[in-house]
Design a protein around this nucleic acid. Sequence first.
DNA 1: ACTATATGCAAGTAGCGACTTGCCTGTCAA
DNA 2: TTGACAGGCAAGTCGCTACTTGCATATAGT
Lengths: 89, 89
Amino acid sequence: MGDLYKALADPTRRAILDELRQRDGQTLYELCVRLITNHGLGSTRQAISQHLDVLEDAGLVRTRRQGRFKFHDLDTAPLREIAERWPEA
Amino acid sequence: MGDLYKALADPTRRAILDELRQRDGQTLYELCVRLITNHGLGSTRQAISQHLDVLEDAGLVRTRRQGRFKFHDLDTAPLREIAERWPEA
DNA sequence: ACTATATGCAAGTAGCGACTTGCCTGTCAA
DNA sequence: TTGACAGGCAAGTCGCTACTTGCATATAGT
């Protein structure tokens, strides 16, 4: 299991989570396009792919294959650890 | 304002937040001792001091001076941004 | 005043992480 | 089967960050 906090540390990865929150089940190429148009990010496909690996390792993204496509779904469950670790005073 | 997520990315900084949650208002030296005894971390004073600067920049730690002492208090308010940004499905 | 205590500043080092680059594998349509 | 499309693997580069090191400042006690 990867590090949840390090996964959140990168702004591009947070933008990916934002994108998946708006529209679940996107493919790698869809995410590349939408990150450019919606967030002004100009990253290569490989960079986004590596970010998705980190997010999946942290449990924030779940994937399902279908033919040559790989769909990515957001999972916010791991974020609960943060709120539980430092509860509000 | 520093980056909240990068502040959380380091395990030593998270241990500092844990320590402050257990006992608010610790000085730099107190934190050094308690990080060693409670968390098994062997960091130098300067390292902890730099971590505290990062946490303060992120708004997670507030400080108050009193003579030659500087007390550190936990502030969990910035963490709300995370829960609000990716609400549970 | 002198000393110990508590913290601050700044330059240098080493390792990790984001990104690129190039090539490879697998799937579908015509 | 051939070509286009979607994705994967791996090595290499570069910058950032955590940490150290050495010195400096400030406060309190005697």
